[in-house]
Amino acid sequence: MASGVKPRVKVPKTAAAGETITIKTLISHKMESGQRKDDDGNIIPRSIINRFTADFNGENVIDVTLEPAISTNPYFQFDAVVPESGEFKFTWYDDDGDVYDTSKEITVS
């Protein structure tokens, strides 16, 4: 699933120190559950993103374990506090060993 995987994240560009901000993330992934069968009746092997993490300047915001019950194109919304200006790093871990990541800067006034 290394091809066609594209993360999207929404983080405000600026915030006040200590302010709570809302973050949304979405990534394209088929999240094959391992429950489906192909036309010949064989189980299609599980192939999902199994972990998602969000960190800010190296400190963790949220660490999610995903099971096959998470929908295709996984979506997460959560809140974070930002003590200072810096960078969010978002990382998705695929069953096949691939890791997808993206970063967003935020300026704290």
Partner: peptide
């Protein structure tokens, strides 16, 4: 398979809440 997801909240998590989409 009854498990859906587990959210671990880190030191910079604010509201201890999250939203997602499930099957």
């Amino acid at each position: 398979e009854p498990k859906v997801a587990t959210f671990n909240f880190g030191p910079l998590s604010a509201s201890r809440g999250a939203s997602t989409r499930i099957r």
